[in-house]
Structure formats: C-alpha cells, structure tokens
Design a protein around this nucleic acid. Structure first.
Length: 290
DNA sequence: AAGAGAGTCAACCGCGCAGGT
DNA sequence: AACCTGCGCGGTTGACTCTCT
C-alpha cells in the first residue's frame, strides 16, 4: 500500500511503514507522549519525517483507533455531518470516536459520496445539497440570479461552497396577518421577535443598518404562512441586523454554535429557539430530518 | 489462467495558521 | 513587522487488491 517504499529523500524512508518502525514509534510515544513530532524521528531512531510519524500515530497506531467497516449509524452520521460541515474531515472525525479524518475522507470519497447523492435525489430532487455562494446585491442580499446559479452548480455537479448563503445584511420586517395589525392574533409573532432579538444580539451595535429586505428571502427564512403579510414600514433598530466586513467571521462563529447545538454539546452560548432553528436550517440547507 | 480496469486506502504533499523570537 | 518553526488539515497519489471478461 501507499507510496513506493524504495523511494528515499535526504536519507528518509518513505512509503509503507514496517512492523519494526511501528514498534519503535509506538514505544516512543507511549513513554514520552504525543507532540514535538519534529524531534520524534531522531529520538526514536526512525528514518522518517516528523510529519510522517505524526500521521502514522494518529491514523494507525494510536489507541482506540477503530478499523474495519462503518456501521449504518456511522454512515448516516457522516452524511449528515458532511451536509452540515462540508469537507471538514477533522471536525467530522471528532464526532465519530475511533475514526480518523483520513479514514472518513477515504470512505466518503469511495462510498458515501454516491450514497448521499442518491439519498438527496430521492428526497429533494430539485434542490442542491451544497449551497453555492451567491453573488450579493449592493444591499448585501443574494440576488435573484443566485437560485439559478445554484441550480446550475447542481447540474454540472460543481461543489463551490459548503456552508451557507452569505448575507451581508439582513433586515427583518414585522410580520402581520393580512386582515389585522394586531400582534396577538399571530401565534408565531412572539417567537419570531425572539429570533430577531437573538440574531440582533449577535451583531455588534455599530454594524446595524437601515431597513432592507427581500420578501421572498424573508418568507423562506421564517417560513411565513399564507395568511401573513410583511409590513415593510415597521422597521426599527431591533429588527435590522447586518454582517458587514466581518461577515465570514460572524458566519463561521454561528456555524460553530449551530454545530455544537446540533450535536448537543455542552458550553453552548446560544441555543436557538424553534424559529431561529428554522432560519438556520434554511441558511445551512439542512432538511427537516434534523 | 491471465490481463485489464476499477476500487481501496496508507501515505505524501502543499498550504495555512498559531505561537515564539 | 518579519521571519521561523511546529502542527494540522484537505487534496492527491500510487501501490496493492479485487472483480470482471
């Protein structure tokens, strides 16, 4: 397996590891612990690079590394995590005890990629599983062409972005029933406002901007029901948020929060209420099975 | 039996980030 | 600020194995 074992560079062995090399590395790490990989080859008496030692230890020699077939549960989890996190194999591996990023990456490329693609076609034939980063308008919203481009990306199977639609600005109008202006008549109103407040609280005060919204986008994010209308006149500082220059950073932090929440981690600062969860599932294009 | 092609997977490579000087 | 070093990550490679004809 692997590269040609007869290949030498600067006196270093390359290619498949021998049993004796494994024993040397294992013994050394068991005594001295992990870390300082650049000094390991010299101290352990190995003619290998530090990187190679680290890789061999992490992927094969480390205790509790699981080898062999993946279970159905593991398959399912990998597919779902990949949908959420993209090709961030180390993060995915962190959720599967005993599995390494390298193993999961190989397994995905060989097996699950096809399986996930098949599942997606069965459940959502017209929607892409991987969202393409849309071009933004001068207001920061995805333009109407983003859907078309996303579909085009699906058609030619080009995977461009695996996280979320990136909006620089998000303004949230009041949600009103078509025949009334009374908040109390809308059961979800309170939750929607809580969601708005939560999102707004994540954004620095200085970055809030004026009333900007695209109705279709809002309806998609908050799953507006047929008997409700958007009142674009009702804006104030509390329901307008933006992600200006630091958009990518903000989004990344929220993705981490979302991931932690999804996986029931402890120490999560932000636990999205139901409506916010719906917004996030739309943003991250995650199906309702979550 | 044997050759070809497809599938598998350990290992390598290059890049980027963080921390230290 | 610039450079160096160590580390970790994701993409890719290529030897080996399996399956088909």
């Amino acid at each position: 397996m692997g590269k040609n074992p007869c290949c030498f560079k600067e006196g270093l062995n390359k290619g498949a590891w021998t049993t004796s090399e494994d024993m040397l590395l294992k013994a050394f790490v068991n005594i001295h612990g992990e870390g300082k990989w650049t000094t390991v080859p010299h101290k352990a008496g190995l003619r290998r690079s530090g990187k190679s030692c680290r890789l061999r230890w992490l992927n094969y020699l480390r205790p509790n590394v699981k080898h062999g077939n993946f279970s159905e549960e593991e398959d399912d989890l990998i597919i779902r995590l990949h949908k959420l996190l993209g090709n961030r194999w180390s993060l995915i591996a962190g959720r599967l005890p005993g599995r390494t990023d390298n193993e999961i990456k190989n397994y995905w490329n060989i097996t699950l990629c096809k399986k996930a693609s098949f599942q997606h076609q069965m459940h959502q034939p017209s929607r892409p599983s991987i969202i393409q980063r849309p071009p933004t308008s001068n207001l920061g919203f995805p333009t109407s062409s983003s859907t078309t481009q996303s579909q085009a990306a699906t058609n030619d199977t080009t995977l461009i972005l695996t996280t979320a639609i990136r909006c620089n600005k998000l303004a949230i109008p009041m949600l009103l029933p078509s025949s009334s202006t009374s908040k109390q008549e809308i059961p979800n109103m309170q939750l929607a406002e809580e969601s708005i407040a939560k999102v707004a609280s994540m954004i620095p005060e200085s970055s809030k901007v004026g009333p900007l919204v695209e109705e279709d986008l809002f309806k998609e994010l908050f799953q507006v029901e047929e008997n409700m209308v958007l009142n674009n006149d009702k804006f104030n500082d509390d329901n307008i948020v933006s992600f200006p220059d630091q958009a990518a950073v903000m989004e990344f932090e929220r993705l981490q929060d979302f991931e932690k929440w999804m996986l029931n981690d402890e120490d999560v600062d932000c636990l999205p209420p139901n409506d916010q969860m719906r917004m996030l599932t739309s943003l991250f294009d995650i199906g309702s099975e979550f």
